[in-house]
């Protein structure tokens, strides 16, 4: 069960891990969050998406989980930033795995929750849940 070099790179130096504070929002920007997973199962992710004019201009994620979970989180944020909401909704788990040059079979499901968290956040955005506007 070895990880690819890409997974190792993203795990050791992940992009955009952490949270986005509402205080930092600029004029016309919105912040929405989404959370998936369960600490009892060993995986929990909370994603923060910063939106302006229907476009994702910032994305960070807090991750409790294994190396694969952290690498998936890192890649998900990188792929989300710069996309419109509609484009971001098209992101799939397969796309994340592809970006990481594959994951060990056992890790395909449980670790790859960041993209689910992103979808959850975008769903929340459309429903007006957990949205902060400036």
């Amino acid at each position: 069960m070895e990880y690819s070099e890409k997974v190792k790179k993203h795990f050791l130096n992940p992009s955009n891990l952490g949270k986005i504070e509402a205080e930092g929002l600029g004029q016309g920007e919105e912040l929405v969050t989404g959370e998936v997973g369960n600490p009892a199962c060993g995986d929990l992710m909370k994603i923060y998406v910063r939106i302006k004019n229907n476009k994702i201009i910032g994305c960070k994620v807090e991750t409790f989980g294994c190396a694969a979970a952290i690498a998936c989180s890192s890649v998900t944020t990188e792929l989300a930033i710069g996309k419109t909401i509609e484009e971001a909704k098209e992101l799939t788990r397969e796309r994340i795995v592809q970006e990481l040059d594959g994951l060990p079979p056992l890790k395909l499901h449980c670790s790859n929750l960041a993209v689910d968290a992103l979808k959850k956040a975008l769903e929340n955005y459309e429903k007006g849940i957990n949205v902060i506007k400036k």
Binding site: Y3, K8, F11, L12, G42, D43, F64, G65, C66, A67, A69, I70
Partner: peptide, 14 residues
């Protein structure tokens, strides 16, 4: 508390 074992292991391995 609050962190996952495999992540600790692989960071130490690094």
């Amino acid at each position: 508390k609050y962190v996952e074992g495999e992540s600790i292991l692989l960071h130490l391995d690094n």
